[in-house]
Amino acid sequence: MTRRPHETPARHGRRRLAFAGLVVAFALLLSGCSPVEERGYLPKGVTSLSPEITSFWKTTWLWALGMGVLVWGLIIYCMVRYRRKKTDTGLPPQLAYNVPIEILYTVVPVIMVAVLFGKTVQLENKMLDTTSQKNQVVVNVVGKQWSWDFNYVHEEVYDAGAQAEVSRDTGVLEGSLPTLYLPVNERVEFILTSRDVIHSFWVIPFLQKMDMIPGKVNKFAVTPTEIGTFQGKCAELCGAYHSQMLFEVKVVSKANYEKHIQSLRQRGDIGFLSNALSRSSLEPDQQQYLPPNIQKSEIVEGK
Results as ranks from 00 to 15, higher is better:
1 M>I: 13
2 T>P: 09
2 T>G: 12
3 R>T: 03
6 H>Y: 03
12 H>R: 11
14 R>S: 12
15 R>N: 13
16 R>E: 05
18 A>H: 08
27 A>D: 00
28 L>C: 13
31 S>Y: 09
32 G>T: 06
32 G>H: 06
34 S>V: 04
34 S>A: 10
37 E>C: 08
41 Y>V: 08
42 L>N: 04
43 P>H: 04
43 P>K: 04
48 S>Q: 10
49 L>I: 15
50 S>F: 09
55 S>T: 03
55 S>N: 02
55 S>K: 06
56 F>I: 00
56 F>Y: 04
60 T>E: 03
60 T>I: 01
62 L>G: 01
62 L>A: 11
63 W>D: 08
64 A>F: 03
68 G>K: 07
70 L>W: 13
73 G>H: 01
76 I>H: 11
78 C>T: 14
79 M>T: 06
82 Y>E: 05
87 T>Q: 04
87 T>R: 03
88 D>T: 03
88 D>G: 00
93 P>L: 05
95 L>P: 00
100 P>Q: 10
103 I>Y: 08
106 T>F: 14
107 V>I: 15
110 V>S: 10
113 V>S: 02
114 A>P: 07
117 F>H: 11
119 K>E: 12
120 T>I: 06
123 L>E: 04
130 T>N: 08
131 T>F: 02
134 K>V: 14
136 Q>N: 12
137 V>S: 03
137 V>Q: 09
140 N>L: 02
143 G>R: 02
149 D>T: 08
150 F>R: 09
157 V>Y: 06
158 Y>C: 07
159 D>Y: 07
160 A>C: 12
160 A>E: 13
162 A>R: 11
167 S>V: 12
167 S>H: 13
168 R>Q: 14
178 P>D: 11
184 V>E: 09
186 E>A: 09
187 R>V: 10
187 R>N: 08
191 I>A: 02
196 D>V: 07
200 S>M: 05
200 S>R: 06
202 W>K: 11
202 W>H: 10
206 F>T: 03
207 L>G: 00
211 D>Q: 15
214 P>E: 03
216 K>T: 00
222 V>K: 03
223 T>V: 09
223 T>E: 11
224 P>I: 07
225 T>W: 03
227 I>M: 15
227 I>R: 13
229 T>C: 10
233 K>A: 03
237 L>E: 12
238 C>L: 03
240 A>N: 12
250 K>S: 11
252 V>K: 06
255 A>W: 04
258 E>I: 04
261 I>K: 01
268 G>D: 05
276 A>I: 01
277 L>S: 13
277 L>E: 08
279 R>Y: 03
281 S>N: 14
287 Q>V: 06
287 Q>G: 14
288 Q>M: 15
296 K>Q: 15
299 I>K: 07
301 E>I: 02
